[in-house]
Write a protein that binds this DNA or RNA. Structure first.
Lengths: 362, 362
DNA sequence: GTGAAAGCGCTAACAC
DNA sequence: GTGTTAGCGCTTTCAC
């Protein structure tokens, strides 16, 4: 008969040991299956455990093993499908390896990230996966390493750190896609990103995000090959909320020498940019061409379907989890996986109005 | 001078106590600020802690307080924006209250959910928020309550449990929206959902999901008022992956007496349904009307913009976290918040072809 | 194989 | 206010 009388205290190894008439040590060994235990003892202990519906206290276990089987994941915004998908990649791999995930959202706020790292450090997680809000300000990440805890970067790189970064290298793809736009005849290409800076963009400016740095680098290279360059007029950062994205879109599209193509740095920005374009009564791609980073299912449903730069986001998350877990388990680091972006040409890029007749689409 | 020599062992209260020349107890009191400590002692302890860069071991702390300041969140699919947004609501509130979140993804698999609950129970989380994969099979959830741990349900209700469920009551909205469709002249309305069942739908069938049950209840009521009824022909469950959703869509649209309107049970289904419709060369809403649950930004960007049933998903997550935390802290439960859905009429519902001329759009 | 006893780092009585 | 002494529930020496 199982004792279903609701008790206050949890049943512990001591209880099981008593019931099985063995020492606490033997019970613990059988339960945690380590050390040497005779079949007879193991059976009795397991039976007693079952009978008492014993459950190990993982907290206590973690305390003396030093392993919590938990990894800390720190991202900017779980609501953003980009991170939602990456997180899915992480949790899938983690679960398979027997690790749990503590997820902290920082809203891309550095102070919140510093805090998150501290909390996780105090909680003694076995390792960290963080998508750093800043690629420059990394003291808190260094502290992770000083505490000798494995750390892997997600989605962006960071300086002053000897940590593996699982991110898609965007420089080449940014270059390619800009060439594609140039090839279609565009000379005025706007780039809109949420990244926060102190002032408007100026060429060569040092940015806080490796992702944006790479994109502008590739874009700049392609531009310069055509005798053009990046300017604060068309490279528009600090596009925070929907309203500011809308304003920026209007500005670049209504200025004297307006942009004929606009590139949205992520799917959230894209949504507001497209709305603003529609609101202006402009049509894609006849009046303005559009290109965005990240490929989500809905981009195929718009009219026209959108041309996008696809990134293997799920794989990136999975790779990060894999890399981290290898590190935690002290295995040799795996070779960095291919995390390549690709340009998916659908219908949102065309020739600019002025040269529409002259230049055939790529 | 701070000792930067990298040591193996973490610095503990004992170390701080020694450095501050006080007892371990006093150091602990000052550090954890509880009990009575003189200003002098407090200062010395804090200074020593700073000097040694002491950090509390939350694991140890949790062990004797019994509180981990961590809540377990179990959802079906974090990659689904619906849960992504709800999770954001949860983490925002949790963080504000000083709680961390361990997130487990079950892929809507009951066995995985049972497992997740056990793991979280063993980890001694302070409370649970779970979006139950099954509204019927709830033994594992009962075990949470037997262990005297707070539990709050998210997004769907569950039987055999005395737990607060933070979910949008869809019955009325399902009724209203069906009436809207009926009012537009539709008599053949398809409903497509991923929910798994043993066989095809038959009227009055007991379903495993309270959400779908409510929706069909509201829909059925409206239908019956017009002398119609729910049938397995048009209520299509088990729409698992993109391919099966596509097939189902084709079936209901190509059958002898085809559906003139289709309702998608969530945004993921919606994407595949719309693609299938486009693939058939049909136009929305001229050839077929479309309605979906959940309002995401992209639904405004399609041509035409989609008519949707919006749910306050973020608020639902936030409310769940709030309710749980109140329970954890032993405060009296807050009054259940309003979590109302609303029908947002955009352009995807029109009159069916046959009666297009006769019935004006609602 | 087994058991007694000593930790892990902290909080919580309990005396003084 | 302060220090001493027990724990929390487990793992881990270390003898036997």
């Amino acid at each position: 008969m199982s004792s279903n009388s609701p008790r206050r205290r949890d049943v512990t190894v001591a209880d099981v040991a008593k019931a099985a008439q063995v020492s606490k040590a033997q019970a613990a060994r059988a339960l945690g299956n380590y050390g040497a235990v005779s079949d007879d003892v193991r059976e009795r202990v397991l039976a007693a455990a079952e009978e008492l519906s014993y459950r190990p206290n993982e907290l206590a276990r973690s305390m003396n093993t030093g392993k919590s089987h938990t990894i800390g994941v720190v991202v900017g915004d779980i609501e953003n499908p980009h991170f939602g998908l990456a997180t899915r990649g992480i949790t899938d791999i983690a679960k398979k390896a027997g690790f749990n995930v503590i997820l902290i959202n920082t809203d891309e706020d550095l102070a919140a990230e510093v805090d998150a790292v501290q909390v996780l450090l105090d909680k003694r997680v076995d390792g960290f996966i963080v998508a750093p809000a800043s690629s420059l300000n990394t003291g808190h990440l260094q502290r992770i390493q000083e505490a000798r805890r494995p750390l892997v970067l997600l989605d962006r790189a960071a300086e002053g750190l000897d940590a593996q970064a699982l991110a898609v290298d965007m420089t080449d793809m940014a270059y390619e896609s800009t060439r594609y736009l140039l090839g279609a005849g565009h000379r005025r290409i706007a780039f809109i990103s949420t990244i926060k800076t102190d002032g408007p963009y100026v060429d060569g400016m040092v940015l806080d995000s490796s992702q944006i740095t790479e994109r502008l680098e590739g874009m700049g290279r392609a531009l310069r090959e055509e005798g053009l360059e990046l300017s604060g007029e068309l490279v528009r950062l600090n596009a925070g909320d929907a309203a500011s994205i809308r304003n920026i879109t209007r500005e670049v599209l209504l200025m004297p020498d307006p942009a004929t193509a606009v590139v949205a740095s992520d799917s959230l920005i894209a949504l507001s940019v497209i709305e603003a374009i529609q609101e202006l009564g402009l049509s894609i791609p006849d009046d303005v061409s559009f290109l965005m980073y990240d490929d989500f299912a809905w981009t195929r449903l718009t009219t026209p379907p959108l041309t996008v730069i696809a990134q293997p986001v799920y794989d990136m998350g999975a790779a990060a989890a894999n890399a981290l877990i290898r590190q935690i388990e002290g295995r040799k680091p795996a070779p960095a996986p291919e995390l390549a972006a690709s340009l998916i040409k659908r219908g949102s890029v065309g020739a600019p109005r002025a040269v529409a007749a002259a230049v055939p689409e790529g």
